[in-house]
């Protein structure tokens, strides 16, 4: 038996919106400690990770570990039937064929219940080790979304250069080229405002990435004020959005290589 309650449906809506463009169907692994999801996009270039800890839910029960295969488009459609501040409960019995999702209004006078069919999804999973990144950029997630949008007007690829001075995003295309530099601020405090950027760096590092994937990652911006971009030479770049006090979404993107 699985049962998980979140006080506000808006959080679950934002989580599903953040990954459904990249991943059409995914296995949700429920265990005593929480929920995990790992999925690659169709082209196997980007990897999405979701981790929600049990203590982030207002109620959480998982009698035995269970994997539920869910079509994210269907999940998203059902979540659109919830008001943002509805309480949401998800429930599945052992060997269930569907996931039960119910919404309760704040006044507790309206309760709706939906069932989404579960599916068997046969996918390869990978083991992602903890890495010592050469550079970590911590910046406003809104700013990240804006830069991705701006760069996409010019090019298809983006180069991220992290140095002690800051982080530079650049692109080029048939129409021309452009770059945006965010200068490193030593401390991120109230005075600097939430838009400031910090770059923790061991060695300067540069990566070229496909912008269309970053546009998908930017859909996680409503979940978190900040995003961290973690770079290491010759390895995927990791983008992390923290989900309040309960977990994170991480996206890994393989770098582009010039031939």
């Amino acid at each position: 038996m699985i049962e998980a309650v979140l006080p506000q449906a808006s959080l679950l809506k934002k989580i599903i919106e953040a990954i459904k463009e990249l991943v059409s169907e995914a296995n949700f692994d429920f265990s005593e400690t929480g929920i995990r999801l790992q999925a690659m996009d169709k082209s196997h270039i980007a990897l999405s990770f979701l981790h929600l800890r049990n203590d982030g839910f207002s109620e959480y029960r998982c009698d035995r570990s269970q994997t539920l295969g869910i079509n994210l488009e269907s999940f998203s459609k059902v979540l659109k039937c919830a008001a943002n501040d509805d309480q949401v409960q998800i429930k599945a019995t052992d060997k269930a064929e569907s996931l039960s999702i119910s919404f309760e209004s704040t006044a507790k006078d309206r309760v709706s219940e939906f069932n989404v069919k579960l599916m068997d999804i046969d996918i390869d999973s990978v083991d992602v080790p903890d890495m010592d990144y050469q550079a970590t950029v911590n910046m406003s997630s809104q700013e990240f979304a804006r830069i991705v949008r701006d760069m996409m007007t010019i090019g298809e690829a983006i180069t991220i250069d992290a140095t002690k001075q800051g982080v530079k995003f650049s692109t080029s295309g048939d129409a021309g080229e452009g770059n945006i530099l965010l200068r490193h601020r030593k401390t991120i405090d109230e005075e600097d405002g939430p838009s400031s950027t910090s770059v923790e760096i061991n060695e300067p590092v540069s990566h070229s990435l496909a912008l269309k994937f970053l546009a998908n990652f930017a859909k996680a911006a409503p979940l978190a004020d900040r995003v961290s971009i973690n770079l290491i030479e010759d390895a995927p770049v990791m983008f992390e959005f923290k989900i309040s006090d309960m977990g994170h979404i991480r996206f890994y993107l393989a770098p582009q290589i010039e031939e």
Partner: peptide
């Protein structure tokens, strides 16, 4: 030409 490698090439399968 730009080559895009598969993410699976970087991580071991479980």
């Amino acid at each position: 030409d730009i080559l895009q490698t598969s993410i699976a090439a970087y991580f071991a399968a479980t």
